[in-house]
Structure formats: C-alpha cells, structure tokens
Design a protein around this nucleic acid. Sequence first.
DNA 1: ACGTTTTACGAAAACGTTATAGCAAAAATT
DNA 2: AATTTTTGCTATAACGTTTTCGTAAAACGT
Lengths: 336, 336
Amino acid sequence: MKGINMIQLAKELGLSVSTVSKALGDSHEISSTTKKRVMELAKKYNYKPNPFASNLRKKKGKQIAVIIPDIVNNFFALAVDGIESVTMAKHYDTFIYLTHENLEREKSVLEHLENGLISGLIISVCTGREGYGHFQQFYESARLPMVFFDRVPDLLQFPKVISNNYESTFESTERLIKAGSKRPLFIQTEEPLYTLMERRRGFQDALVANGISFTDESLITCSENMEDNYLLLKKLFSSRKRPDGIFAPIEKFAITVYQVCRDLKLNIPKDLKVIGMTNLRTAALLNPSLSTLSQPAFDMGREAATLLLKMIEKKSYAAANDIIVLANELTIRDSV
Amino acid sequence: MKGINMIQLAKELGLSVSTVSKALGDSHEISSTTKKRVMELAKKYNYKPNPFASNLRKKKGKQIAVIIPDIVNNFFALAVDGIESVTMAKHYDTFIYLTHENLEREKSVLEHLENGLISGLIISVCTGREGYGHFQQFYESARLPMVFFDRVPDLLQFPKVISNNYESTFESTERLIKAGSKRPLFIQTEEPLYTLMERRRGFQDALVANGISFTDESLITCSENMEDNYLLLKKLFSSRKRPDGIFAPIEKFAITVYQVCRDLKLNIPKDLKVIGMTNLRTAALLNPSLSTLSQPAFDMGREAATLLLKMIEKKSYAAANDIIVLANELTIRDSV
DNA sequence: ACGTTTTACGAAAACGTTATAGCAAAAATT
DNA sequence: AATTTTTGCTATAACGTTTTCGTAAAACGT
C-alpha cells in the first residue's frame, strides 16, 4: 500500500481534497476542465482510492460473499463461475466460504459476516434438519440483500434461483419407465432439503401417472457416508426384488450406483437403467455413458448474482422476493 | 450494518474508547477485570469491530485473494478447497478471481488489487507467452506477499508450491514403456508453461533412459480449441505410424484421447495405453478406467495458503523465496 | 443596475477504529 | 521517606475517504 492518496493529489493540483474527491466521482459540482486535470494526474500516479476509507465513509462496499457447501463439485464450481462472471463485470469482489455440509460452519460464517464486510450474500444451504433460523437472524441484524440458489430454504422473504426440479424429474422418470423399467427406484437422503423433496415428488407423480404404484420399495435412503451407501445398494441390488431403474438425484449417488453395478457385474442398461442428476463433464465417457439430468449451474449462478447486485444497487431488497426458475436439461445416453 | 460500535460500548461501560479497543485486543495495559467487563458487554450486544475502520487504521486486513485460471476443473477446485481450509481456520477472508486463461483479465485483476484491498495473494498463472512483467510490476508497487502454485512463473523472488512434475512424469512414462509401449506420445501445448516443460522433460528422459529415441513424432502440439485437437488426434490415430502409448499432461487432452478412441474403435489399452494427468474423481469409472497421475491439489492449496499467511504475519516475505515440492500420485488402472 | 440563481470550489465534520503519548495512583525500589 | 517504576486508564491524533454546508464569483433575469 505504498500508493499515493487524495491529499497528495490535491496538494499537487492546488485544489482541496473535497474537490479532488468530487472530480474523481464525476460530480456535477466540478467543472469539466478541473475534472480532466484531476483524472489525468490520478492516472499518471496510478492512483486508486483506498477501499477501506471509502467503504467506511460510505458505509458500504463492492464486496459480496458466496456461501456454498462444496467447491469440489461441478455444479457449485459452475455456479461460482457464473457468479464471478457477473461480479467481475460489475467490478465487485467476491468472497468465497465453504461449509462442507457443516451447519456449525455455516452459522459461524454468517456470524462473522455480521461485521459488515460485505454488501450482499449468495447462499446454497448445507444439509441438515435444523431449520433456517440462523439466516433469519442474520437478516434481522445485518439487513443485507441475500439470494439463495439451488439449495434454498423455505423462507418466503428471500429471493431464490432454482431449477425446475419437479418437472424435469417427472420427465426423467417417465423416460426410465418408457425404456422398460417396471420397478424404478429413487435414492433419497436422510434429511431431504426442499430441492430433493421436489425431485422426489416429480418421481412419485411420474410413477403414478404411468400406472406404477409408489411404495416403500420405490425409495431407498442413503447417507453422507459413501461406504455405507455402497454396501446398502450392493445388498439391495443383490436381492431378488431388485430395482430395474434408478433415478439418482445427487451426483455421488449415481457414481456409487455405477461402482456397485461394476462390482456385481450388473449390466447397465439391461439389468438397470440409470439417470443421474449431475453436471459431470465426463458423463459421456463413463462405462456405459451416463444419462444425465443436468442443472443450468452457470446460468443459475449468473442469475443469482445479477439479482443480488440489482438488489444492492436499487436497495429494494425488501421487495425482491422473486423466484427464478431455470430449466434442467435431460440427456439420454447409453445407461437408459 | 445496524450494529453497535465502540463508542456506544464505551459510554455504557463508563470507559474511554481506547480502553475498550485495548480490552478487546487483549492488551496487557488493561486489567483483567476491565477486560472481562468489556468482553461481556461486547458479547451481549454481539459487537463486531468494523473491518473497514480497523483495516484503514491498521493499514492492513485479513483478506487475501486467489487468482486462478478456472474453477470448473477439479484440480483448481481442490486447491481452492485447500486454501479455504487454512484461511477459514485462521479467520481470513478469501476473494476469488477467475482469469479464464485470459491475460488481460489477469492483468486487470492485478491492477484492481493495487487499491490495497488485500494483504496477500495466491496465484496460478494463465497460459500465454507474454511473460510475467505484470506480476513483477504489481509487486513493485503493492509490495504484498505473493505465493504461486502449480502454474508458476520463472521469477526467482516469489515463493512457489509445485509438484514433482519431472520425476512423476518420468515414472509414468516408464510405466507406459514397461507395459509394452514402443512409440509413446506426449501431448504438448503451443506455449508450454514451466510446469508443462518439466513434464515434457520427464517424458523425454524416460524415453532415452529406456532406449527409445525421442523424435518429432514423440510429440504432438494441441491448442486451446478442443475441436481442432479432436481432429488432429483422430488424424494421427488413423495413420499408419500411430502411437501406442500416450501421456496426456492435461486433463482435457486425456478426455479428448478417450473420445477419439471411442469414435475410432481403438482399444485401450491394447491399441493405445493411456495415462492422464488429472484429478478427476470419475477416472476409475471411465471406459476403460483411466490410469492417472494426479496432483496433490488440496495439499498444494493448503501449503500455499499456510505459507502466505506466515509471510503476511511475519512480514518476512522478502526472504521467503522457498519452493515447496509435493509428490504427484500415479494410479495405474485398466488403461495401461 | 440590481437582485437572484447557478457554478465551482473549499472547510470541516464525519465514518469507527487503533496507536501514541500522557498522567495519575499504586507498587516497588532505594 | 523519597525515589523510581509499574499499572491502568484517558485524551487525542491519525487512517483516507465522502458528504454537508458555506460562499465567493459568475451568470442570469428584469
């Protein structure tokens, strides 16, 4: 921070600090000739206003935060890419915080951000049944614009960016059935978030709409522990009443299904048709190529960021409780 | 930012602002009873010091930046994960900037960061032949601790975190040869960075060490345009003198190789043995499972961040021109 | 020519901290 | 008992901006 400051600029120009400040802010109070003089000297010295001083005085800055469960996941990586494309263009700085599905971490990040470091917040919540009181609480005290995406809480007052989980899962499930699956299976989690609930609803309704009864055997509950899941699925797939179709609403479940099938020498798609929700770029290169329902991750990030910045700049965040819904994309490959 | 501030705290406690500040900073000048009183009231009101004011006064903050080419790439995602694990633990905030292999963007990010927003910088440079003058220049004027990782410039004065590219590529190439490859091929880029050069050197030396002559035909040059690369490789693989082994030093090249083989109905590993440098989690599920040389991405991020924070806190960044070398991991699967 | 408005700038007060210097009172040293 | 030193606190000046208010001079209107 060896840089020059306004005071030195002002001195060299024979102007007051306030004039320099206004000139750099392109204020109408300053004559265009003075503005030009100021701008030129600023450029000559490569002057950059100190953001701390500026933010302190203005009581706000151009920094936002992104809180997501994980970055080693194509979906979130793409979303961050989308977010960054907007913030970069609008000259905002983007903080990133990873919760690793840990509620305590999510809470502590929020608590930390109450210090006023940021002007807005983009969030995809981590799993857990404990509700969303901490977001409510954060909002009460910080009063900052917040946008949720994909993994959204059921708090009405916040704007959200999601994808058409119900419809696209319905469609995907129908494809499984049309391809010949009589006993499709949906893999759910222990504490399903809204997003997952929607997918399950789509699955269930597709079964019913196609004359297949939805029973306990249409669902299996997997956990965060992948080894447990592997064993659980292996046991199920070895049983007499094994499913002949799978909708995996989470990437890692789809991968586990593949691993189990490989180890049990089950043939995909003959023995088991598989559709997985994932943004894996290598889905087409798996053995066999995986049919995917992929989310418009980049676009979701882009929309969320665009909305957030709009809220920040218009200060109309109280009203902006929109829900933006984008379409997932179904790609049928050899696994069906 | 509805929060309470020090002045109000001081007033309620009947103390001066400086006493409160020192008490919160756990200064030895303040008695432990007063400290306790202050801390308790601060906690009661959930007081958080304003980072802008604090940073302004102290002329530094707890924010760092990460500049990487891409986040939609398992390697960089893992590295960011590693970085964040450190910054989170030490209560630093992490900005993220993506260059998308665009030198202009890299430059403009650097220029932006000259405003003093951050206290340190972790970088993996983008490709391009234009040299690294902008980093030098940034350092001259900002004087901030900087750590490079993986894609490092050949500027001596900066500390770097890399992996043993030469040795591990040498070993990988030997495995290709031992598995029967007589004509191994290395895919290089148009403007190889230091990292890639090291890998090529390892490849070349492995050939020579195993009695295979290193010729023009041991190399092929691919570009950023994946479609061009696809056609180029397809043509080569269709020719009489096609290679029977491939070392792909970049993830996307390995994927393209798989695509070409699939389309040409070439059998991996019979017709072509493949080792790819990648951190893809799905490598084992590809058809056939891909042998990988993977980088310790998370650890590299962690080391880089640890080093950077040490430099920031010790202010000894002038001296810290270490190079930390971590080991890549070779996993042989069905593709060899 | 006189009053009024506009233009273009400057002085000074924030913004919320931290660091420096000062100063009584208490404790320790002679 | 007289001194030095330590303890525990306060007053105040930064840090580098932005913003509010004030005010000459210039421009305008009649």
